[in-house]
Nucleic acid binder design. Structure first.
Lengths: 339, 339
DNA sequence: AACGCTAATCTAAACGTTTCGATCATGTCA
DNA sequence: TGACATGATCGAAACGTTTAGATTAGCGTT
């Protein structure tokens, strides 16, 4: 900018005024400055501007795994929304690890992001501090964090799983395997609550050996399914509380020589683009990803626009059971077993 | 930092020296400074640091669509690699649009990223300028751009499709539909070349009505497939040059009342996690996503580490045909047709 | 006692913007 | 003609760091 000012024989203040339109500049000087900008190929240094202005027009976004189709979609929507608003997005993947997440949030704050969208956080001590210090607005995604009182958009996880399990029960299933992630993360906790609630409401016992914990990855789903299917009294249906793990479930079913839905019914949380193309077409709980992403972006953009003092807003969205053909009725079979 | 210095009764230079370890600070002052940092809760301002140092420890990454599983995986690998190296990643999605891409690259450069990984770029004028001005190192991904001489990691697309089409030909297929994205983008161009080369090598004619252009999205694959299947002389196999479009192909086959592979064989570019779980298990060309992401990250990190003057390095990786059960031999059927 | 050497610390100038208040020319009004 | 409002332009301080070079103190040599 200094060079531009010199070349145009004006002060830097005038150049800045022209660029930002913050003051009127005479046509003559305007012309000289524009010429100089072109000649030199000047580009404003956004870092210096950020330093002076105290805003980077950048937000931070952390998700557990971008390869999980739910997060892929949400990230995509959020990125588009902020792109439209002229913001850049810094993306971090936490690998479901609390320490990693805290580190990455620190990394983002170091870089002076103007706001933060944090997906699926555990009870991070850092996060609590951040929100309390209230330097930047934070939106929680997919998770409400006890003690952290801030904007959030989450799914009614318990209800969604309740509906799915109830559907299986109505099909005649009595022994329903449940594969979940570690339950220190609230969606996992709430989904499990939905499972228990549905069994309870139907007057069914809860068999603890049918509940398996994994670490969100395909291999965990595989192992959990293998264990359940190897038992003498195996379940007639399996519900997986996340999407990557259900791939493991399907592979285990295949490897053990069974088939879905003939031998065993399967359903899972989170829809994916292929779900109704291949066989079996998987019955899933679909989250409204578009709405989730947009709402989260809107909440944050609203804060960034200056609405800092409004009380925290919690948005609770509803999941939708996408019934396809991976679950079959168990009427006849249930009778023959009990006979 | 000023406050810390005052509280510790030292100069800011000493504080800086301690924080960065750039000079020895006596134990006594160290202790006072550390105490002050804790008391005040001081955090270094990375923006000011970037301004002074001329480096942001941030890189920019642009991809066409993060929802395309190939790019999802690559983004994930790259993000991890830079996270390990202490860099942040700014992510942009260009939606396959050249203007969007140029805008986003400008956005990233404005923010003074230290380097850039650009996936699947067209012949962007901006990109050429950027690389020529050589302010920041650039790595091209999935694409070599004529006239832009910089580091790149790409697949041998022509060879990969040649292998896939040859496989179909060896199964007895003679009329093979080909669905591609707009061919101004080099992978699409090269893949098409592989298709033509394979037909040519087998002495088969190229039926232009079997080549359909789409815009990379599911709906385009759907429409293209519908058109081909509605003709009186429909193909016995379809190859889709990208992954989202093959979903459309499968849906069109289903909607028109045919089934794969019984009535029509299908294969496509890019593997995905579900490919061997459901039926039909799709035959695909798998790219070595892990290697691609890592190599790209390494090339850029090497430049960032100071190796600026090395000549541009082009890495050419090989695809791998993953043969599953979505393509069936056509021997008997071909005879009955020709009879 | 004068000197030089080393280690610790500080002063002040940069980095590239924005912006407040000052300056200055010009035209208007009494 | 003098006072004054208006509009355009500028000078300089500030944002929070890093760092080159200056300063100071302590200590061993001669």
């Amino acid at each position: 900018m200094l060079h531009v000012a010199e070349a145009a024989r004006v002060s830097v203040a005038t150049v800045s005024a022209l660029i930002n339109g913050t003051a009127t500049v005479s046509p003559e000087l305007s012309h000289r400055i524009e010429q100089a900008i072109r000649d030199i190929g000047y580009k404003r240094n956004a870092i210096a501007r950020s330093l002076k202005m105290g805003t980077t027009r950048t937000i931070g976004l952390t998700v557990p795994h971008i390869t999980n189709p739910f997060f892929t979609d949400v990230v995509s929507v959020i990125q588009q929304a902020f792109d439209r608003a002229g913001y850049a997005v810094m993306l971090c993947c936490t690998d479901e690890d609390l320490n990693t997440q805290d580190d990455q949030i620190k990394l983002l704050l170091d870089r002076m992001v103007d706001g933060l969208i944090v997906a699926r956080v555990g009870d991070g001590a850092i996060l609590k501090r951040i929100v309390d210090d209230a330097n930047v607005p934070v939106v929680l995604l997919d998770r409400i964090c006890k003690g952290v009182d801030t904007d959030a958009v989450v799914l009614d996880n318990q209800r969604a799983v309740f509906d799915a399990i109830t559907y299986l029960i109505n099909l005649g299933h009595r022994r329903i395997g449940y594969i979940t992630g570690t339950s220190d993360i609230s969606p996992m906790h709430d989904r499990m609550a939905g499972y228990r609630e549905a069994l309870h409401a139907a007057g069914l016992p809860i068999a603890e050996e049918l509940i398996r914990f994994g670490n969100f990855h395909e291999i965990d789903g595989y192992n959990a399914t293998m264990q359940m299917l190897s038992s003498h009294d195996r379940p007639s249906a399996i519900f997986s509380a996340n999407n990557p793990m259900v791939i493991g479930t399907m592979k285990a079913i295949r490897d053990i020589g069974l088939s879905c839905p003939e031998d065993i019914s399967v359903a899972c949380f989170d829809d994916f683009p292929w779900s109704d193309v291949f066989q079996p077409q998987l019955t899933t709980v679909a989250q409204p990803v578009q709405a989730i992403g947009e709402q989260a972006a809107n909440l944050l953009l609203d804060r960034l626009a200056g609405n800092r003092d409004a009380p925290p807003r919690k948005l609770l969205l509803k999941g939708r059971l996408m019934i396809r053909n991976s679950c079959r009725p168990l009427g006849a079979m249930a009778q023959s077993v009990s006979a």
